[in-house]
Design a protein around this nucleic acid. Structure first.
Ligand SMILES: NC(=O)c1ccc[n+]([C@@H]2O[C@H](COP(=O)([O-])OP(=O)(O)OC[C@H]3O[C@@H](n4cnc5c(N)ncnc54)[C@H](O)[C@@H]3O)[C@@H](O)[C@H]2O)c1
Ligand SMILES: NC(=O)c1ccc[n+]([C@@H]2O[C@H](COP(=O)([O-])OP(=O)(O)OC[C@H]3O[C@@H](n4cnc5c(N)ncnc54)[C@H](O)[C@@H]3O)[C@@H](O)[C@H]2O)c1
Lengths: 209, 209
DNA sequence: ATTTAATTGTGAAAAAAATAACAACTTTAA
DNA sequence: TTAAAGTTGTTATTTTTTTCACAATTAAAT
């Protein structure tokens, strides 16, 4: 399996999403410049990225949407089902759960952890809510390697360490805490203020004349 | 004003956040390698980034936390208050509103737009909820340049176009739609499935021996 | 006084990412 | 037949980003 940078993986996921859209519109074939337009990218970049996934287009009809999708998915997806843990079922946790539900064929939230007794043992979006004390047991039992953190920042680091301790390899952190772990752990801190501040910075850009 | 890439701006925002943490712990001075450790970055990268903001550290005591913060903020922040529009006050919209409330000295959500009559004219987190039909009027009146979209994907593109039409320069899109606009518009598509899929891809990485 | 130790700012080098360029290919048109 | 048009895969080039490396600086230790 060839390796790929985070940027390339991000774009492949984007191509997959765009291709699914085309597929649902019954588009059969597509050229790199079509994808490029929708992705705001250079066509050469797309062709280069697609070299990784081992599917050859035709110089006449470009890429077959179904076949290309299949190859991208084969490249991206793990072999087995990927279980994901969600920590915290507040407002944000609920909308994450809701959003993820049924969106992916093999990656799915499979366990929720809470400290609020009112939420524990309930089943939401087909997913059981466990007590946070049972974290280690459930994570190990389900071979969970991915966790989404949506609890208050004060407890985030402690929980993150516990997660990694019991085998989690990737963390998506929505709290205000800045998580930082050795490189073999994949961490994405998704503090939305970063997006807002970047948006503010780049909205200052005056149109060049 | 020197220009900066999105990556550099992202890191500067991160430094700012880390410095605020240090400040709140009454740390007076800090070295590039301290920041580097917390940011999981190379110290040279940090020093290079800081060249942009025009603050010189001392070879003995490193950077004065307060002074450096001041310079980063001066570099990042616009001169005037930045008003932000939030489109959609569902589950996600509410948690975004809640999260952003009071978090930034000069960037703040200032108008909410909805189509649900039950929500219109209510005031949440100090912010008025308007009817989506009033979008153009309110956005222009408040010189809103930044919008956060948290409505269903089917209407996202239409609303995004309306926003840009009335002067919005940056859009943060949480819906499933993939927005794509000319380069002078800053767009961040924050589909969380990208994060989950990336997390899944990189959690496969076996520890190298 | 001198040396040692530690850090900064920055030019130079290296690495990574994006883009350009083009041979090879296939179809259609002339 | 041959030429033209349009695309791909991939190499080469350019651009951007990151890292290295070191003179300059300062304070403390000797
Ligand atoms: N990045 C973003 O875009 C964004 C947006 C909104 C909120 N947030 C952050 O996400 C987090 C959750 O936000 P929210 O609006 O859902 O808050 P919330 O208060 O509605 O929900 C937090 C939930 O976490 C649970 N919890 C708290 N401590 C726990 C623990 N130790 N173990 C297990 N469960 C625990 C609580 O019982 C509660 O249900 C907060 O840190 C918030 O600041 C981030
Ligand atoms: N990126 C993410 O991480 C993430 C997470 C959760 C949800 N989402 C997406 O964000 C969007 C909102 O999610 P939610 O859970 O808040 O959904 P929701 O149904 O709770 O809220 C949607 C809100 O938008 C309003 N709305 C709908 N059409 C509108 C229009 N034309 N003008 C103004 N308001 C309108 C509705 O009245 C409702 O209040 C959805 O597209 C969802 O898929 C994204």
């Amino acid at each position: 399996m060839k390796t790929a940078s985070e940027k390339v993986v991000h774009r492949l996921i984007l191509y997959k999403k765009l291709l699914k859209n085309f597929q649902s519109k019954s588009v059969r074939n597509i050229f790199s410049h079509n994808l490029a337009e929708h992705a705001s990218l250079n066509p050469a970049q797309i062709r280069r990225d697609l070299m990784l996934v081992g599917y050859d287009g035709s110089t006449v009809s470009g890429y077959n949407v179904n076949d290309l999708l299949f190859c991208i998915e084969k490249f991206l997806y793990p072999n087995e089902i990927q279980n994901v843990a969600l920590i915290g079922l507040g407002n944000l946790g609920k909308s994450i759960l809701d959003y993820c539900y049924g969106r992916h064929p093999i990656i799915a939230i499979n366990a929720i952890f809470e400290k609020d007794p009112n939420k524990i043992n309930r089943i939401i979006c087909g997913t059981r809510c466990y007590h946070i004390d049972d974290l280690e047991i459930i994570v190990k039992k389900n071979s969970i390697k991915i966790a989404i953190i949506a609890i208050s920042s004060s407890v985030t680091e402690t929980i993150a360490k516990r997660l990694i301790e019991c085998g989690v390899k990737s963390i998506i952190n929505y709290s205000n805490a800045c998580l930082s772990f050795p490189a073999e752990i994949y961490v994405e801190n998704r503090d939305m203020m970063f997006a807002v501040e970047k948006a503010a910075f780049f909205s200052k850009k005056e149109k060049e004349i």
